[in-house]
């Protein structure tokens, strides 16, 4: 048995369409999770900096727990394990929506938000304390000064590590294949099992993932050069 390359399998026809639909699902799942994890990350970061103990401890526990357990286990937990925890009505509603997509989004969002919160927090710490003091003495409340004065600056400084987290999230979304979400990796494997052309199918998926990450890394370098360096030098 000699391996015959057949690139046509992945560049046209039915299997090409499968791969494209996989890319679409990967992008969908990533975009939704990125938006949600950013918002959740902001909230957790603010909670983590709160001086109100219970809030602080909750955020602290959240960060440590979700950063220190594998994403795959979290995906399994949300998909198979949350069933017993949620009320029946919620389960039925979720199932009608196609729970596998939601479970993947929930897991990716929670996992990534923990990392994002830490990045934002270190961004905030690099903003001089005087800014907060100035804002407070100008009559802003703590929360308002945080959201209007400190966070906008911190987020700008945090953009490179954030983009990195988003890239990781996109790559991590490949784990959603384990619960039947038909994203890119799932489709690549489908093509393999239908055509036995694993080499071609994996190559196609690799090109998409690596291409995406090169493009984003490129943009990040540009951002660093055009936006961040001028601020830093000042």
């Amino acid at each position: 048995m000699n391996y015959q390359f057949d690139w046509a399998v992945v560049t046209s026809g039915k299997y090409f369409e499968w791969l494209v639909s996989g890319v679409v699902v990967t992008v969908k799942i990533s975009v939704v999770s990125i938006a949600l994890s950013f918002l959740l990350g902001l909230v957790i970061a603010v909670m983590r900096m709160s001086r109100f103990r219970p809030v602080y401890w909750f955020a602290h526990g959240y960060l440590e727990f979700f950063r220190n357990t594998p994403l795959l286990v979290q995906i399994f937990f949300w998909y198979f394990g949350s069933y017993k925890v949620l009320p029946d009505a919620v389960n039925q509603w979720l199932n009608a929506q196609g729970f596998e997509f939601a479970a993947a989004v929930i897991a990716l969002t929670i996992y990534t938000s923990a990392f994002i919160a830490e990045d934002i927090r270190s961004g905030v710490r690099s903003i001089p304390k005087e800014q907060m003091e100035a804002a407070r003495s100008a009559g802003f409340s703590y929360v308002r000064s945080m959201f209007y004065i400190i966070l906008p600056q911190a987020v700008r400084l945090t953009i490179p590590p954030l983009i990195n987290q988003f890239l990781n999230l996109t790559k991590n979304s490949s784990l959603a294949m384990t619960i039947g979400v038909a994203e890119l990796m799932y489709q690549a494997r489908q093509v393999e099992s239908y055509t036995f052309k694993g080499f071609e199918a994996f190559s196609a998926a690799t090109v998409v993932y690596v291409g995406l990450s090169f493009a984003i890394t490129g943009l990040m370098t540009l951002y660093d050069r055009k936006v961040l360096q001028p601020i830093k030098v000042r």
Binding site: F80, Y83, N91, Q92, N95, G98, F99, E100, T178, I179, G180, Y186, Q190
Partner: peptide, 20 residues
């Protein structure tokens, strides 16, 4: 039909039990 493929059958059965 919408086909949901898992790594193996027991996981599919679990999805059946849970109404997925």
């Amino acid at each position: 039909a919408k086909i949901l493929s898992f790594d193996d059958y027991p996981q599919a059965v679990l999805a059946l039990i849970q109404g997925k």
